[in-house]
Design a binder for these strands. Structure first.
Lengths: 217, 217
DNA sequence: AATTGTGAAACACTTCACAGCC
DNA sequence: GGCTGTGAAGTGTTTCACAATT
């Protein structure tokens, strides 16, 4: 279960701010206003100011925010000031794509081991990462002090993997399997379910410009 | 831009209900209560009843919901009563994984063409789908009356692809590229940004059980 | 003059609680 | 007696509007 008074949705916006700030920084922009950040992120400037203000007063009135300072603060708030290790369970199509994607960017959150239970996959590599047997899960998670797990296994195996990850010390899960994981409420679970995304998108494609309501027909 | 008075978040829950109902139906359960659906989805029973009630009175007081009836209704509400075609732009690691995943399940939303601009990828196949050149995008989208697009190209190419999809008649986008797409506000855009998910997850792994607040230190 | 930081107001969404119906 | 459907209350989140600051 998350935190005190910072809206959960605000936390999800912080990495967006961080990305924009890093782009600005690369372009040698050293100060930015909330209005300019709003233009680049699509969020309102008030929302951006409020989100940042939950954590302190990082800006200068009449001036704006120092990109350097704000990057530093956001990194610290998100826990990205040190590199964050994560484990990936599942080396199928999706798992391998996720691993490659993550390793391509010199990411602050980094997958450090991949597990699978398919003997054909164990011992293979994705980029320079070994695919290890699931039986090594507990040992590796504990040894590497991993607190983040990514689940990309079929639904039938996902609950067991979640339980084992949590038992080994993982505190946050990114779950791609299409089911409702049951874990201690203190554990943060973010689900990404591609079928659900596509199916809910279908609703919006069927809504015609001149909106007719759905009641019971 | 979505609809009138149905909360946007409610639409995202409908496919979850649909999945649970289909599981029940396969197990020959013909009637289900909102409490049982709550148990299986993790949403509250009141929320489920309210979500369904936005669209009509589908249940029977004292009894529950007929799984058959509710499946039929949800399919119709979501626009899944006919098969929904989608196009995928980007045949990289992620794009191919998405396509395979989608094609594996006999999905109601189905990717019907893949586009890429890499000559090495054009002409290859993912399962039984051709990868076509992006220059064919407009023609194919119009010809097949596609209203849903999935963007899995690098950020630098994503805006152009979005603009071209929308110009060709696409009304909803699932965007995996890490940027804020600018499209007509009538178009529904769902972003899935893996880096952002991982970075916001990091926040929760750094929150220790005995919660200390972040203020300005 | 410009821009932040923030209470107050508005809006959105969820939960409560119970009447209505089977 | 059990379960839906729904106004009303409660909670969460966003927007407004402006004082404070440079």
């Amino acid at each position: 279960m998350p935190d005190s008074k910072v809206p959960n949705v605000a936390i999800k916006r912080l990495p967006v701010y961080l990305r924009v700030l890093e782009d600005l920084n690369k372009a040698d922009v050293s100060v930015v206003s909330s209005v300019e950040m709003a233009r680049r992120t699509g969020f309102s400037s008030e929302q951006i100011r409020k989100d940042l203000a939950y954590f302190g007063a990082f800006g200068t009135r009449g001036v704006g925010y120092s990109t350097d300072v704000l990057i530093e603060r956001l990194r610290r708030i998100l826990g990205l000031n040190r590199q964050v290790p994560a484990v990936l369970v599942g080396a199928g199509n999706l798992g391998r794509a996720l691993a490659r994607y993550n390793l391509e960017r010199h990411a602050d959150v980094r997958i450090v081991v991949i597990f699978d239970n398919d003997p054909l996959k164990i011992g293979t590599r994705v980029r320079d990462l070994d695919v290890k047997p699931v039986s090594d899960l507990e040992r590796e998670v504990v040894r590497r002090k991993v607190r983040m797990g990514i689940i990309a296994v079929p639904a039938a195996a996902a609950q067991e993997m979640a339980t084992r990850l949590v038992k080994s010390g993982v505190r946050a899960l990114l779950n791609f399997a299409p089911l409702n994981l049951r874990v201690d409420p203190e554990i943060y679970v973010q689900n990404i379910d591609l079928s659900i995304e596509l199916q809910s998108l279908a609703y919006y494609t069927s809504q015609v410009p001149g909106d007719r309501d759905f009641d019971d027909r």
